[in-house]
């Protein structure tokens, strides 16, 4: 079996999508890891009401943790000059008004951009919604990071999601441990593959038919 990229590398590749001046909200899972690789000048937002906050408090500096400065996952961060604090109505206006990019985790992404990322079945109590649906519907760009297949090797990029949806037709870009894929009106376009992998090998682990980009290249972190 050929080697796939590890989660940290997927996070690095996803963070590369961001540019100076962007505002981004990071979901749970691989997106959380992106925080370590955010380019200079990108402001990170947390739903509970902070934009442009500082680095997370490390495990060996717990004495710096302040209960008043936490992110949506309850993790402690450091205040820095230039950050803004605000209430939840303001926060979700930022999120829902197309001003924000979001990097979300995913369970399944469908050919048409449908995203399932909150519930693996088991009815309404089968998962936690949080602000994920708001981000998926309201962000100006939705980047989904996930492993290309389940542990048993089934594709997570599918023709139609079988898990309960987070939002319809919301995904713009999919970044996995094997590939970078753009969702377009014509279908899913394979733009990049992991080092050592061919487009045909990636296709084999992907349910919908991929359109191979003319300038297909290897995933590159520089």
């Amino acid at each position: 079996m050929k080697e796939k990229l590890d989660r940290e590398v997927v996070a690095m590749r996803a963070a590369k999508e961001l540019k100076d001046g962007d505002c981004v909200n990071l979901g749970i899972g691989i997106p959380n890891l992106c925080a370590n690789y955010i380019p200079e000048g990108v402001l990170v937002e947390t739903e509970n009401g902070a934009l442009g906050y500082g680095p997370l408090v490390m495990q060996d500096e717990i004495e710096l943790a302040d209960q008043h400065y936490t992110d949506a996952g309850g993790r402690y961060w450091k205040p820095i000059p230039g950050m803004a604090l605000f209430d939840i109505v303001t926060s979700f206006i930022m999120i829902r008004s197309g001003r924000m990019i979001t990097i979300l985790g995913g369970l399944q992404v469908a050919e048409n951009g449908d995203l399932a990322n909150w519930n693996t079945g088991g009815g309404a109590l089968g998962g936690t919604i949080g602000g994920g649906m708001d981000l998926a519907v309201g962000a100006k760009r939705v980047i989904v990071t996930l492993e290309h297949t389940t542990k048993s090797g089934k594709p997570k990029i599918v023709k139609e999601c079988t898990y309960p949806l987070t939002a319809k037709r919301c995904t713009n870009t999919v970044i996995t441990d094997l590939a970078v894929i753009e969702v377009t009106p014509e279908g899913m376009v394979l733009k990049e593959v992991a080092p050592g992998w061919t487009a045909a090998e990636v296709q084999e682990l992907t349910e919908p038919k991929l359109i191979i980009a003319k300038d297909l290249k290897e995933i590159d972190l520089v």
Partner: peptide
């Protein structure tokens, strides 16, 4: 959803009859 909760509380506060919400369309 959390944003919907915020909007519904705002609607309650402002005495609106409710909101039309794009979040949740196509979901359970």
């Amino acid at each position: 959803s959390h944003g919907t909760l915020a909007s519904r509380l705002y609607a309650g506060a402002a005495d609106l009859g409710g909101i039309y919400n794009p979040v949740g369309v196509g979901t359970i």
